[in-house]
Design a protein around this nucleic acid. Structure first.
Lengths: 159, 159
DNA sequence: AGTGATTAAGTCGTGTGCGATACAAATATA
DNA sequence: TATATTTGTATCGCACACGACTTAATCACT
């Protein structure tokens, strides 16, 4: 650990490049998603619905690591666009099942070119595929650690 | 590039782990920063002010890769907390110089333990320092690419 | 059956982020 | 020197994120 005065320098943080890279990446998606009339978080919701089919609000929250108070309004906006349906479960009235409409399903076709478009926008650049795969691997590792840490904090009482 | 149906799977995206890791990291800082009555973006503004001293709104924007419409209200909130001063330059009336108050300077002492606290919260975990350094390096590379791309887009006309 | 704890989803308030745009000051150009 | 363009900051509107809290439904346990 650094003991000089540089530990507070922006270049020495990990948090900052994560934060900046995330924002810039979202920005990269924005014009592409605009053609589908979607925001980036809305696109993520669709990814999990395309991949795993009808599921509860809670399952969507867990998969995206978002809180219900973020996801609920997001789902309402997608419902207004006729992309998905929200239906209370009969077995358990607390649960709301989210399912895709015809329109929501059909968007998958249009979205299928998006990963390619994103990759292509990097193809000329000085970053190779292995580097991206390593990045992805480390990020998932970090996410796993922080996510477990958060769950632990939540269950331990401090009074 | 994948031609099967898995290219839209959440696990195969790079954007998602970036987005999730960024949010979880911010969450990690939140309780620590709460003791200084700061939000995470406010902390970032202070980092660049501690590091580079008095500077313009524009310089802060460039360093954090944020737009002025994000930074302006952020600075106003910090001004209300008596952490910094906003003063129009006399040489160029468009420019606003941001300088730290006594209180803003003194916060640096209290903040000096933060990087250590964050690192310690990972110390038990299965992620080594080299991996973090590689992550940081790749992220800065990505940021550089996306940042340059954005600047280019901005200057080329498409009519 | 009754009751306290837990759970799923949602409401509310605050603080970002950013696209689109406004406005004034400075600069470039005719 | 008048006018067009650029630049620095800010305003506005919308969509997240999340902490703190609420509500209703279910569960656990007596």
């Amino acid at each position: 650990m650094k003991t000089d005065g540089t530990s507070l320098y922006l270049e020495n943080q990990v948090c900052f490049p994560l934060y900046a890279a995330s924002r810039l990446t979202t920005k990269l998606y924005t014009p592409i998603l605009k053609e589908l009339d979607l925001t980036y978080p809305q696109y993520l919701v669709l990814l999990v619905l395309w991949q795993h089919g009808t599921q509860t609000v809670n399952e969507i929250c867990s998969r995206l690591l978002l809180e219900s108070n973020t996801v609920t309004p997001l789902l309402k906006r997608l419902e207004e666009k006729n992309i998905l349906l929200r239906k209370r479960s009969e077995a358990d009235e607390r649960v709301v099942q989210i399912s895709l409409t015809e329109k929501g399903e059909s968007l998958k076709q249009k979205a299928s070119t998006i990963p390619g478009q994103i990759i292509n926008s990097f193809s000329d650049e000085s970053i190779n595929e292995q580097e991206i795969l390593n990045l992805q691997k480390t990020l998932f590792k970090l996410i796993d650690i922080m996510n477990r840490k958060e769950l632990l904090e939540g269950t331990c009482r401090h009074d």
